[in-house]
Simulated assay, not measured.
Amino acid sequence: MARFHVPTIDISAWVGPGSPDARAAVVAAVDHACRTVGFMQIVGHGIPNVVIDDLQQGLDDFFALPLEAKKKYVRPGGENRGYSPPKSESLSYSLGVDPVTRMNDFFEAFNVGTSWREYPGTTATAEDYAENTWPDDTAGFEPAVTTYYDEARRVAQTLTRIFAAALRVPDDFFGDVTDHSIDVLRMNNYALPPGSIELGAELTGMGEHTDFGLVTVLWADRVAGLQVLGLDGSWNDVSPAEGALLVNLGDVAARLTNDKWLSTLHRVKPPVIDGTIERRRSAAFFHDGNADAVIAPLPGFVSADSPALYEPVTVREHITAKLAGSRAGRKNVGAVREAARVAAAERG
């Protein structure tokens, strides 16, 4: 089997004016990455450096607050908003996989997303598209995060146009699936004060999981930790190139293509250096699709030789089951195919 490789793809031909040949080359490269890895790095995305610099500063300012100050912004797990303290989640449960210790993922996070008020005239409700909580302890956090959020959403929408071309569906196909998309920006911090964890234990920065929706656009600093599961069952270290964003497919993309495109398992392992965990930051923008969109394999990916692997499900139903696993500790019994891949990797 070929060596594991996450390709770097320049999407500038789709961000600005691009020739038909240049755009076709991007489509071919993205399609190949989606079929073979499920991950890619993109450059030419058009997000200004100053926007990313401001985001990093905003994250640093917020996560530097005392834990008790951050806990003011904890929200109910089902809302997927606000602050998540360390060891309050276990992503493995979203796959129906038992972690070594319940709710053992040591990362902390802050989530913001698109509220129902931004989708007038649609079926969006506060139940699926919650309002945001913004910390009042750090003045620069909200404007920096909002600016980056808008840029990341633009990149995700550009990618769905490329996806439509790759899948040979109408240009507006994903518009119908994402015109009131559940979009969330999840900002993560992998660092804890010395003495607050057992360094001899089996530490899990973020347990193995697949992303829930259509596509994820990830900014991450270049500290080691992210690992991606290869087709041969091996875990492989992945770090973004300078100026690149990591992009990976989620479960919605895999279901639409009957697993021809890969929703690849990944995890974060903590880099322990001299008895402490090195700090690592990331911000994942999840473009998940409309809550009421019904997701099932597209006809072009189903045949007598390739029967449908998934029953139709709404984005709401799928995400609810996944969040009940990661946030409430209830195993997602519907994630049979993903759990089997984790088990195979452990045996290997």
Score class of each variant (00 low, 15 high):
3 R>G: 05
5 H>E: 15
5 H>W: 07
8 T>Y: 04
8 T>C: 15
12 S>D: 14
15 V>K: 15
17 P>I: 06
22 A>T: 01
22 A>D: 12
23 R>M: 08
23 R>E: 04
24 A>E: 14
26 V>P: 11
29 A>P: 08
29 A>K: 12
30 V>I: 14
30 V>W: 08
33 A>S: 13
38 G>V: 05
38 G>N: 10
40 M>P: 01
43 V>K: 09
45 H>T: 11
46 G>F: 03
46 G>R: 06
46 G>N: 10
51 V>E: 00
60 D>Y: 00
62 F>M: 00
62 F>C: 00
69 A>G: 00
70 K>T: 01
75 R>G: 01
77 G>V: 04
77 G>C: 03
81 R>T: 12
82 G>Q: 05
83 Y>M: 06
85 P>H: 01
86 P>C: 09
86 P>S: 14
88 S>Q: 12
94 S>G: 09
97 V>Y: 03
99 P>W: 07
99 P>D: 09
104 N>Q: 15
106 F>K: 00
107 F>R: 11
113 G>F: 04
130 A>H: 13
133 T>C: 08
134 W>E: 02
135 P>C: 01
140 G>Y: 00
143 P>Q: 03
146 T>V: 09
146 T>F: 00
149 Y>P: 00
158 T>M: 14
160 T>E: 03
164 A>Q: 05
180 H>I: 00
181 S>L: 04
183 D>S: 08
188 N>V: 01
191 A>K: 15
191 A>T: 13
192 L>I: 11
194 P>C: 08
195 G>R: 10
195 G>P: 08
200 G>L: 09
201 A>H: 11
203 L>G: 12
203 L>S: 09
205 G>P: 09
207 G>I: 07
213 G>R: 02
213 G>E: 04
213 G>C: 09
213 G>L: 07
220 A>G: 11
221 D>N: 15
223 V>L: 04
225 G>E: 05
225 G>D: 07
226 L>H: 05
228 V>W: 06
238 V>K: 08
243 G>Y: 13
244 A>R: 09
245 L>W: 00
245 L>H: 01
248 N>A: 08
250 G>E: 03
251 D>L: 10
252 V>Y: 04
254 A>L: 06
259 D>H: 02
262 L>D: 00
262 L>P: 00
263 S>I: 02
264 T>S: 12
265 L>S: 01
266 H>G: 07
269 K>I: 15
271 P>Q: 13
271 P>N: 11
275 G>R: 08
276 T>K: 12
279 R>Q: 09
279 R>T: 10
286 F>R: 09
287 H>W: 12
287 H>K: 10
288 D>C: 14
294 V>N: 06
295 I>D: 02
297 P>K: 08
299 P>G: 05
299 P>W: 06
303 S>A: 07
303 S>Q: 06
305 D>L: 04
311 E>H: 12
312 P>V: 09
314 T>P: 08
315 V>I: 14
317 E>A: 15
327 R>S: 11
328 A>W: 05
329 G>Q: 09
329 G>D: 06
332 N>P: 10
332 N>T: 02
336 V>C: 01
338 E>K: 08
341 R>W: 11
343 A>I: 05
344 A>T: 05
344 A>R: 12
345 A>C: 03
348 G>Q: 12
348 G>D: 10
